[in-house]
Simulated assay, not measured.
Amino acid sequence: MIIQSHKGPYHVHMNAGLPAELAAGKGRFLIDRNVAALHADRLAAPLASGRVVLIDATEENKSIEAMPATIDRLMATGVKRDHVLVAVGGGIVQDITCFLAANMFRGMDWVFAPTTLLAQCDSCIGSKSSINAGGAKNLLGTFTPPRQVFIDPGYLDTLDQREIRSGVGEMLKVHAIAGPDHFARIAAAFDALFTDRAVLARFIRRSLEVKQGYIERDEFDRGIRNIFNYGHTTGHAIEAATHFGIPHGIAVAMGMDLANHIARRSGVAPEAVFRSMHGTLRRAYAGYEELEVPLEDFFAAAAKDKKNRSGDQIAFILPDAQANIVKHPLAVTDSLRAAVAEFFAEERKN
């Protein structure tokens, strides 16, 4: 795949490992510490190069406060402006590397080897990255695409089931955005996503192809790309209200189901739209349907969503009458509160 961006085209190589010349030449590697341990053979050349910074993939390390220490470790590898930063890991390592590439020496090239399903099917393209600052999540960021992405399915072999399910949640989101027929196809293959790597690979690629069509039209997320927040306004609020007691992609699946429920209770979409997706989404967040989500904490978190433009409205992304995903801000009324309370108390459990 070739993705067009404001910095020129970049390539996504499917079923591909990192080129040997990166370890032999100008590559400077930022590698998730757990990935380095689990895939020492796959990463033998980079790890032997002596030009590696191992990253503990925590939110604390993905912060502006942690950047000076990471920069010091990078400088110790002899990094120069014409070198290439190589991120090997999931979204946290991606965000750290992208931020450094955008800012060190006024800009460096970087490449990405995503090792989580969520990163392989979604975040590896799109240019966006964010880091935390002063206790605020994802406050600082940049639009700096990688020069190349290398998607190696071998990394998925060591993911636990929660991480696979988290990636599947994001894939369901992308296919819902693509349209009802696309969602029906991934729903029909739901079980095979966990047992058949060929099926999973096919839907990873299709997820990226769908996203490509939006990010090339709206790279800076000012318009149509906003609908990729489907399941996220609600999902992020669920994560925050539960103190991150649910993995991100699984929260997104629950957030999609809640968004669909809000749409039907608000008259934006009919009952049939909710029912057409509920069964699959319910399976995607199975095991978390009893997780307590305090209502006031949920609305407090949703009110802070960065897509909000009005102080008294939340910028929900909802399905319409034809199950097309659209931006639909709603005021926080008693009826909206009742709909959300109903979902957490009843609908997500049925």
Rank of each mutant, 00 (worst) to 15 (best):
residue 17 G to K: 03
residue 17 G to E: 12
residue 18 L to T: 12
residue 20 A to P: 04
residue 21 E to R: 11
residue 21 E to Y: 15
residue 22 L to I: 11
residue 22 L to T: 11
residue 23 A to V: 08
residue 23 A to S: 15
residue 24 A to K: 15
residue 25 G to N: 08
residue 27 G to P: 00
residue 27 G to E: 05
residue 27 G to C: 02
residue 28 R to L: 11
residue 30 L to R: 05
residue 32 D to P: 00
residue 32 D to T: 11
residue 34 N to W: 09
residue 34 N to Q: 10
residue 34 N to D: 04
residue 35 V to Q: 11
residue 36 A to D: 01
residue 37 A to F: 01
residue 38 L to N: 02
residue 46 P to R: 14
residue 47 L to V: 06
residue 48 A to K: 07
residue 48 A to F: 04
residue 49 S to N: 00
residue 51 R to Q: 14
residue 52 V to R: 11
residue 53 V to Y: 14
residue 56 D to K: 01
residue 57 A to N: 00
residue 59 E to V: 02
residue 61 N to Y: 00
residue 62 K to W: 03
residue 64 I to Y: 15
residue 67 M to G: 03
residue 69 A to T: 08
residue 75 M to S: 05
residue 77 T to Q: 11
residue 77 T to E: 06
residue 77 T to H: 11
residue 80 K to S: 04
residue 80 K to A: 10
residue 81 R to V: 10
residue 81 R to H: 06
residue 85 L to D: 10
residue 87 A to R: 04
residue 88 V to A: 04
residue 90 G to S: 02
residue 91 G to M: 12
residue 95 D to H: 09
residue 97 T to N: 07
residue 97 T to V: 12
residue 99 F to W: 10
residue 100 L to P: 04
residue 101 A to F: 06
residue 101 A to R: 08
residue 102 A to E: 06
residue 102 A to K: 14
residue 103 N to C: 09
